[in-house]
Design a protein around this nucleic acid. Sequence first.
DNA 1: GTCCCCGCTATTGTATACATAACGAATACA
DNA 2: TGTATTCGTTATGTATACAATAGCGGGGAC
Lengths: 251, 251
Amino acid sequence: MKAVPEVDRSVSQTVKAQLALRDQILAGSLRPGERISELQAVETTGASRTPVRMALVRLEEEGLLEAIPSGGFMVKAFSERDISDSIELRGTLEGLAARFAAERGVSARELEPLKECLAAIDELLRQVPISIEAFSSYVTLNARFHALLTELSRSPPLIRQIDRASALPFASPSGFVMAQSALPEAQQILIIGQEHHRVVIDAIENREGARAEAIMREHARLAVRNLRLALRNRTHLDLLPALALIKTATD
Amino acid sequence: MKAVPEVDRSVSQTVKAQLALRDQILAGSLRPGERISELQAVETTGASRTPVRMALVRLEEEGLLEAIPSGGFMVKAFSERDISDSIELRGTLEGLAARFAAERGVSARELEPLKECLAAIDELLRQVPISIEAFSSYVTLNARFHALLTELSRSPPLIRQIDRASALPFASPSGFVMAQSALPEAQQILIIGQEHHRVVIDAIENREGARAEAIMREHARLAVRNLRLALRNRTHLDLLPALALIKTATD
DNA sequence: GTCCCCGCTATTGTATACATAACGAATACA
DNA sequence: TGTATTCGTTATGTATACAATAGCGGGGAC
């Protein structure tokens, strides 16, 4: 773009395009099943066709896009079951991570950040009812907790796989907990989830691999029940724009 | 390439380049840690730089390549633990698939191909000792069995994830079973693995999810033990060129 | 009136040219 | 003699031009 030399060179065009496109998909401005026009993507992202195409390939591998046999890509649509399976899948992987952490042992220093997360979340949950702002903090802290827990496994292949599984935003159990904020059960669900976190830390400290794994899987099952509840009640779905990717029964 | 118009148009240049590069990596002509030169890849694959770059991005997402911060890609190196973790990871995912299959139920017709696989493998295992050719058939059949089992889960996200986990060739439990062919224990290991297959089918038929899952994880643990044995004995490693990706302790 | 075929257009796949950044070598200075 | 700086070369990142294909619309024929 010689006419627009003030492009941001601090980040590669490919990455810029990838982030921009992902935002568009998750924000719902590109609807599921819709074919993505490269030309249009070039206009909206500001990058040229080559980096846009690289970004499209990455997003396809990430699972947000689907290749069209005749060429090009479309936004992937997900069924409700796809989503609950993704949550359970992630829970299973995180269970394995917790088991690895417990079996391989972690130092007290490594557990420190986890415990800080735990304490911060406890603080937030003391509010009854919890505010939207506190929810936002909660979601961030919860994601951090799960990421730290994953790291404890010290297994690059597993961490990589969990990252992949987390790329689909609705695969994160915490998301649907958040969606429940307006329901009477919401606070209780958050507290149960927090209890799970406490148990998994304890299990890892005591090197009880099986227990650490089991509790993470239970955690995911809670999230699945939660998802069902959220979809049935259509509660705070606007907080989760990624739900735009769910194909309805009529599709 | 105007000078060479007889390029094969039946398959896209991108796919061609991807397959060619993967072959080179797995065959060991590109060594772990080695930077991949795009120009060189252009020459060896016959595609031009754009499809080569797309292929490189795909292979990176696949986990065979690693991006170099300063630019470009290098062949990824794996530790022995990375590999055993990958096997256990895959076993965990296949366990989940088996559980899904059992819980959701599968028809007798769907199980038919699995049972055919089982019978064919039984036939091969009747040879004592088993020939190299029979081993080759065994590996194919075994891969087919695992793929069919995965499909039974009827969960696209899970199937996708298992495919990803299987992209690294050494993540396949069967591979290391094969590597054992020269050891006295080899036949016994194959038979135990086959017994696992039989049990998982039985569990799925009887809709025992927990048992189906447990046996697949046990199956993976067998493969891990197997890997250790194979690496210690350096047995038939030439049958598994992908082992070139393992970084030695001196690296 | 309907169906089929031909041609046009739009979009993707591929190739290549250009810009830029990184790595290395060589020279000069301390 | 060693180190640092600068210049040159090479390879990657980006942009754009070209080619080919698929989809669509119009026109003609049955």
